[in-house]
Amino acid sequence: MSIATPPVNVLKASDFASDQDPRWCPGCGDYAILAQTKKVLAKIGADRSKTVFISGIGCSSRFPYYMNTYGFHSIHGRAPTLVTGLKLANPGLTVWMVTGDGDALSIGGNHLIHMIRRNVDVKILLFNNRIYGLTKGQYSPTSEHGKKTKSTPMGSPDMPVRPISIAIAAEASFAARAIDIDVKHLEYVLERAAHHKGSAFVEIYQNCNIFNDGAYSYATDKQSKSDTTLYLEHGKPMRFGKELDKAIRVNQMRPEIVNVKDVPADELLIHDEKAPNPTLAFMLSRMRHPDFPEPLGVFRAVDQERYAQLVRSQSEQAVQRLGKGDLQALLRGSETWTV
């Protein structure tokens, strides 16, 4: 699992660290994501001056302060709006947006959907810890139904949303998932996102060891993880289990788990991240523990026109058709008279 990247390596990962010390709780999953992000930026030869990190509000949204790039720590839920404006003003910048489950899916749900459907060129890192950390432990839009938290002493009455389902419903051109502590795979996914042109949506399972510790233990625990997770590889059958002895098959439009030895190889579901139709990616986004292993990796990666480029190409077309605007003529308008 590696991508052919020319060995630019002008900067080291540590060159991307700002002079501010991270203030996350010791043991927080955010540290691993920060480390892998810097590593990937070094690996792809990112230019610090052309890289911008934009965030909303929440634990994860402190991220820009720790990067020695341009950064904007905005307001709750609105990071996508700033990203869109910034990319319109300067499409040449590489923009990363860091957000959380509350920031992106609750208060900022509207903006997230619209930024993704426009295919604004941005890498979206959604740290999903299934809880509100910064406000100290209320349930979030991804918290399990029935979850007891400070604001739901009798259990959450809400149904959780699935971030990748939302991204795909919003016509995402790229959607992927990784886990904070599986750093090699996280690095791979981040690198894939870094190379994608358009909205690259990455859900990262992130452990909040203070308010929701162990939320993903089923997927990180050595004993269970091979049965509870499924690493997606383009063009390969979806196999999982300790011996890769289990696989996914589609039966009457529904996924089911089969034993590899029980079914012919050509019945196993093959992953196709480039499928123009998002049905497969959407189906994968619905697969949830404990009924299914949860897919990790790239769900979908297709080429789509990017927003700022489209907007600017309209301007270019207008110039071609009408010539560069003449302000004096515009001010005169179509009907004038002289006094």
Partner: peptide, 23 residues
């Protein structure tokens, strides 16, 4: 558009202001 003018019809009022800040 031929005057170097771009318009962004945002999804809501907040987005319009946020995008303007990004601009």
């Amino acid at each position: 558009k031929n005057f170097g003018v771009m318009t962004f019809q945002a999804e809501d009022e907040i987005a319009a202001m946020g995008a303007a800040i990004g601009v």
